[in-house]
Computed example of a mutant assay.
Amino acid sequence: MKAIWNNTVIAESTDTKIVENNHYFPMSDIKEQYFKSSDTHTRCPWKGKASYFTIEVDKEKNEDAAWFYPSASKAAKPIENYVAFWKGVKVTE
């Protein structure tokens, strides 16, 4: 699977996990140069506290377009530190 934003592959993996129709990519399979930590956090009732990344490609920013669970709940442990996308990031094979 590939995650693409601004015509650039920002993550690529053969080991994504699908939860609630989102592909979660292992942290090791994202291209770190495009990811900047965000101060945004949200809480999912069953997965726990989410942290976010802003994606930056060619000086264009997509605020909080990627999220992950650094300390996932017991039920969500399989996706702990896996990254998912939204806000126009295309996930495709």
Rank of each mutant, 00 (worst) to 15 (best):
P70H: 05
K59G: 09
S51R: 07
I55N: 02
A72N: 10
H41Q: 15
Y69M: 08
D39V: 13
V57F: 01
E60I: 04
I55Y: 09
F85L: 08
S51N: 10
A72P: 08
N81S: 11
T42A: 04
W46H: 05
Y69K: 08
D64Y: 00
Y82A: 07
A76D: 12
F53N: 01
G48C: 09
I55G: 02
A66S: 00
E63Y: 12
V57T: 01
Y82T: 02
T40D: 06
C44S: 09
V83R: 04
K49C: 07
Y52F: 02
K61I: 09
T42K: 09
P70W: 14
I55C: 00
K47I: 10
H41S: 12
G48D: 00
K59Y: 00
A65D: 09
A65Y: 05
F68C: 04
T40R: 15
S51C: 07
F53Q: 03
D64V: 00
N62W: 03
C44A: 06
A84C: 13
E56R: 03
T40Y: 15
A65E: 03
A72V: 13
S51F: 01
F68N: 06
D58S: 09
K74W: 07
A72G: 14
A65Q: 07
A72F: 09
K74Y: 08
H41K: 14
V57I: 03
P45G: 11
K59W: 12
F68H: 11
D39F: 11
K87V: 03
A84L: 08
V57S: 02
A75Y: 06
C44Q: 01
F53D: 01
R43E: 12
N81C: 08
N81D: 15
S73M: 01
D58Y: 02
N62I: 01
S51E: 06
A75I: 14
I79E: 12
H41I: 15
A72L: 14
A66R: 03
D58F: 03
W86Q: 05
V57W: 00
W86A: 08
P45S: 11
I79L: 10
K87N: 07
F53M: 01
A66T: 05
V83G: 08
A50Y: 08
T40F: 14
S73L: 07
H41F: 14
F53P: 03
D39Y: 08
D64P: 06
T54S: 14
K87Q: 05
A50E: 09
Y52I: 04
P78V: 05
E56T: 09
F53H: 04
